[in-house]
C-alpha cells in the first residue's frame, strides 16, 4: 500500500482532491450538479494555469515570487489594451512572455538568486499594472468572456479546461524531448551543460513557458471576472507554489508533475469553498488552504518515508 503511494506520486493529489470533493458533496449535495461544479471550480482555472507556470520555474530549480503580480498585470492589459487596440494588446502580451524568458536568461547567466530577482520583478509588474489601470475596472474582450462561459456537454467548462491544461503541459513537460532536458537542468544543471546543452537558453525557455501560462492565466481570470485590478491575482504567488508542491512536485531535482499541479490547484480552490459549506467563518479561508497543504505534505512524508525504508 505505502509502496504503491511511493511509486505512483500522482495518487496522493488524486486522493486528496477526491476526499475534499466527497466532503463537499456530502455537505452540500446540490453542488453535485453541472451548475454546482461550475461554480465550485470556475475560479480554479486561472489558478491552475498560474500553477503550471510556477511548475516550469520550479522544474529548473528556481522559484517565482512574481507570478501573482505578473498575472495581475496581464489581467489589466487584457481588460484595457486588448479591448481597445487588439493588435497592440497581443504585441504587449507577447513582449511580456519574452520578458519572462529574458528574466530566466539573466538569472542563469549571472547566477543570480531567482527568489530575489523575481521579488524585484514583482514590483516591476505591479508598477506597470498600476500604470495601465490605476483603479480596478476595465472590461473583458467579448470573445474571451464568451469562451470562459461556454457550456460544454456532460461536464462544466472548468473540468474540461483542467483536462486540457493537464494534457498539454504533460506533453510539453514530460513527454517531449526538450521537457526531459529541462527536468535535467533542475536535476543537475552542470551535467546538462557538460553534455553540450545551452543551459542559459534552456532556462530562458522554461521561464518563457512560465510567462506564456502566466499570460493565459491572466486572460482566463479577466474572462471570468470581466474586469481587472492591479492586485486581482496577488494571492496566486502563494497558491501556485502550494499547488505545485501539493501535486507531488519537489523543490529540487526537477521533479514535477503537471497533472498533479493542476489537481493541486483545484484542491486549493476547493478548500476555500468547502469552508462556506461547513458554515465556518470566511476568516479561515486562507488558513484552510495552509492547513490542507500541511496535511497533504504530512501524508506524503509518511508514505515516502515508509517507501524509502523498504
Amino acid at each position: 500500500m505505502t509502496r504503491l503511494f511511493a511509486r505512483h506520486r500522482i495518487l496522493l493529489p488524486v486522493i486528496s482532491l477526491a476526499v475534499l470533493l466527497a466532503l463537499t458533496f456530502w455537505l452540500q449535495p446540490r453542488a453535485m450538479s453541472y451548475f454546482g461544479m461550475n461554480l465550485l471550480f470556475n475560479l480554479a482555472v486561472p489558478i491552475a494555469l498560474a500553477t503550471v507556470a510556477q511548475m516550469f520555474i520550479i522544474k529548473v530549480n528556481d522559484i517565482d515570487l512574481s507570478i501573482g503580480a505578473f498575472v495581475s498585470l496581464v489581467a489589466c492589459l487584457t481588460a484595457t489594451v486588448l479591448v481597445q487596440q487588439p493588435l497592440l494588446g497581443v504585441l504587449a502580451l507577447a513582449a511580456l512572455v519574452l520578458a519572462y524568458a529574458g528574466m530566466g536568461a539573466i538569472v542563469r547567466a549571472l547566477e543570480l538568486p531567482a527568489i530575489v530577482v523575481t521579488l524585484g520583478m514583482s514590483f516591476v509588474w505591479g508598477g506597470l499594472a498600476l500604470f495601465i489601470l490605476p483603479s480596478p475596472g476595465g472590461e473583458s474582450p467579448e470573445w474571451l468572456s464568451a469562451l470562459m462561459s461556454v457550456k460544454p456537454p456532460v461536464l462544466p467548462m472548468a473540468v474540461w479546461a483542467a483536462a486540457v491544461i493537464a494534457a498539454v503541459t504533460h506533453l510539453i513537460a514530460i513527454r517531449s524531448g526538450i521537457g526531459t532536458v529541462l527536468r535535467g537542468v533542475g536535476g543537475n544543471a552542470r551535467a546538462v551543460a557538460r553534455a553540450g546543452w545551452p543551459v542559459v537558453r534552456l532556462t530562458a525557455l522554461a521561464y518563457g513557458l512560465a510567462g506564456l501560462f502566466g499570460v493565459l492565466s491572466g486572460m482566463a481570470l479577466t474572462g471570468l471576472t470581466t474586469s481587472a485590478g492591479a492586485d486581482v491575482a496577488s494571492r496566486y504567488t502563494l497558491l501556485s507554489i502550494a499547488g505545485v508542491i501539493l501535486g507531488g512536485g519537489e523543490f529540487v531535482g526537477g521533479r514535477v508533475s503537471p497533472t498533479g499541479a493542476v489537481l493541486g490547484a483545484f484542491t486549493l480552490a476547493l478548500a476555500a469553498s468547502l469552508l462556506s459549506f461547513m458554515r465556518l467563518s470566511p476568516d479561515w479561508q486562507i488558513g484552510s488552504q495552509g492547513a490542507i497543504l500541511i496535511l497533504v505534505l504530512t501524508a506524503r512524508l509518511i508514505f515516502t518515508r515508509r517507501g524509502a525504508t523498504r
Binding site: W284, G290, A291, I294
Partner: peptide, 15 residues
C-alpha cells in the same frame, strides 16, 4: 522545505 513550511504556516497565521 523552509519556503513551503513558512508559507503554509503564514496562511494559518494570517487567518
Amino acid at each position: 522545505p523552509p519556503i513551503i513550511a513558512t508559507l503554509a504556516a503564514s496562511l494559518v497565521y494570517q487567518s
